[in-house]
Write a protein that binds this DNA or RNA. Structure first.
Lengths: 359, 359
DNA sequence: TCGACACATGAATCATAGT
DNA sequence: CACTATGATTCATGTGTCG
């Protein structure tokens, strides 16, 4: 194995892995095909077409074929990992359960599953399901009895305003300038991951100088983040176009002085509490009445957090606006509930939920 | 199968499931055992003593036993589900990957994986991993080609301040008053789920009166939430102590009055009104003109509810699509008629007809 | 230079009743 | 089962255009 800082192998994943020596890498980060099973075209409400991931490399004949492929590349990764090494895989509900099962069957020891909460996911255009707003990463050591893996607890805590980093990470998608374009100015790769995600993975579980292997290198996000953070990397990629774009991209990356790493934290914001959650929490019950500040107008609460006044139904804000014949209304301060001391705005219930969430 | 509103079966999960008739429940919510080490007698029903095997082999044996158990209860659940039914399972990284894989292998069709972000998780005291701050739920329909599952999209959207409900839900743990205590004043059940979580599950994917099955009933959170929301339930629980605590708990639950169970309904379920009926009702007259939203393009209404633009004739939808050169068009919102206050979409005429039909 | 507004787009298993 | 007709449906963010 090369001790070069940067290695990109243009070749098929499993074959290239087989050519690598045992126990030679410190970390694997893998973003394998998800095996999406899409129907026909999906149109947005404005009739534009969603640019789907229909690439040939994401197509598998069956779950069995996908499992076989997964078992092969994962067991090669296990072989090339050092005994104190670890592996990250990212996936969605289409494939991550199969990957997780195979990991366990191969003897990997799962340390965490981590949820990437997308700050700006694509909506569900047809209103058929919950907005698919996250992906799952699995972090695993080589085995239950393996030598101690690397976890930079304090760096993570520092990056998270001095409280422990949780297993859910809120990060935006990779868009705009960061998104690598091809010659035509279109996105070069359908599933490019944000570098911030890789930044956190690498910072959490490697040390400067470590060798990071990415068997599905794509346009080289892992390589870019590794170089920036002073780690070495080996990338394997089958498509010549991606290899070339990755090279160009990584050549431009300027490594960050290690002393500057601790300033690259993320901020947390006040959690949003929808009114429906007040009902879920049992602070109001379906059928309860809410009142305007003077106690003259009344509205009934329903189980989904909608209000009813006569024939009107809608959110606390919408109904508040309608009964006042005004364009807008802050329902949290307008609507009140009865207490033994008189009327109180429902905003105090929101405060209660927030307090509980912070506790 | 009983048509009773409340049924608690004291018995072993798979055995009790086998006694239930086909296609008799609308929803399954399951919180199966997570940890392979706990409840070994359950997870290794037919295991002969395994001596002197290394960790790897032992692990595989455990997983195999857990898989067997999971396959059995899940396939029974699939059998007792109605064709338009659905199933929820909750788990952590210890078991959820195996459960998800088995679901897929049995032919369940995954609709979402949902992350319960714990607002107040237990910290990782040793600082060796990320704070395990979430659990994963899988929502699946009976199969890819199954009849349409229930999803109260508009109720969920309403409960989330009028934006689509996402696949990550932030909810506090079950603590304080809500936590069921045993005779000694200690928590009675190690993994009691918050009722708010069940509230959201039930509200999203069932209708009032539906039958909800929970094969691992525990202290009856599913039953409590179901009763509160006017749903029927069947709970299966092996431990006599839990059964008794669940009974006492559920007896105290006061159901939401039937009249307050309404939530925001979907437009898809409203009665269909053909455009021709607008003309029949005299709200438009043959020969009247309709216009696009900007008032630039015009179409003539005919007696049968077809439109004419130049040489083109067809439905409001077809003509709307053709004049815009788009694959599809909702004619109800595209076409407008003249009023003294300007243009108004013909959808308001449909609303008028619907109101008359309801009266 | 700046604000207002329009437009584009992201790993998506994305409709349903009737004939 | 296949096919057709109806008609329901989007959030956050970045970029570009226009005045």
């Amino acid at each position: 194995m090369s001790s070069a800082a940067e290695t990109i192998i243009h070749g098929e994943c499993i074959e290239a892995l087989r050519a690598m020596p045992d126990k030679s890498v410190d970390l694997v980060f893998a973003d394998p095909p998800y095996n999406l099973q899409l129907g026909g075209d999906l149109l947005r409400p404005d009739n534009s077409k969603v640019d789907a991931v229909d690439d040939h490399w994401d197509q598998f004949e069956s779950f069995a074929a996908y499992d076989k492929f997964s078992r092969e590349w994962l067991s090669e990764c296990q072989r090339v990992l050092k005994d104190d090494g670890a592996l990250w895989v990212i996936g969605s509900y289409h494939n991550i359960f199969r990957v997780g099962t195979i990991l366990q069957d191969l003897g990997f020891w799962i340390l965490n599953d981590v949820v990437w909460r997308k700050a700006n996911p694509m909506p569900n255009f047809k209103g058929t399901r919950f907005t698919n707003a996250h992906e799952t990463l699995i972090w695993a050591s080589k085995g239950r009895g393996a030598r101690r893996y690397t976890f930079n607890y304090d760096a993570m805590k520092m990056a998270n305003d001095e409280v422990q980093m949780r297993s859910d990470w809120t990060l935006p998608l990779c868009t705009g300038e960061e998104r690598i374009k091809n010659g035509s100015g279109d996105k070069a790769h359908p599933t490019q991951k944000p570098e911030a995600l890789l930044h956190r993975v690498i910072l959490s579980s490697t040390r400067p100088g470590d060798v990071i292997l990415d068997p599905f290198f794509g346009v080289g996000t892992t390589g870019a983040a590794a170089k920036r953070l002073g780690r070495r990397f080996i990338g394997i990629e089958r498509e010549a176009e991606y290899v070339e774009l990755a090279r160009q991209r990584i050549a431009k990356v300027i490594p960050v002085p290690l002393a500057d790493l601790d300033v690259m934290g993320s901020k947390r914001s006040e959690p949003r509490v929808p009114f429906g959650q007040i009902v879920e929490a049992g602070l109001l019950t379906p059928g309860d009445m809410l009142y305007d500040p003077k106690g003259q107008r009344a509205a009934k609460v329903r189980a989904d957090g909608s209000l009813v006044v006569g024939d009107l139904t809608g959110s606390i804000h919408k109904i508040g606006a309608m009964v006042q014949s005004q364009p807008a209304c802050n329902g949290w301060t307008y609507w009140h509930f009865k207490t033994d001391k008189g009327l109180a705005p429902i905003d105090v219930l929101r405060a209660k939920v927030r307090a509980e969430m912070a506790a």
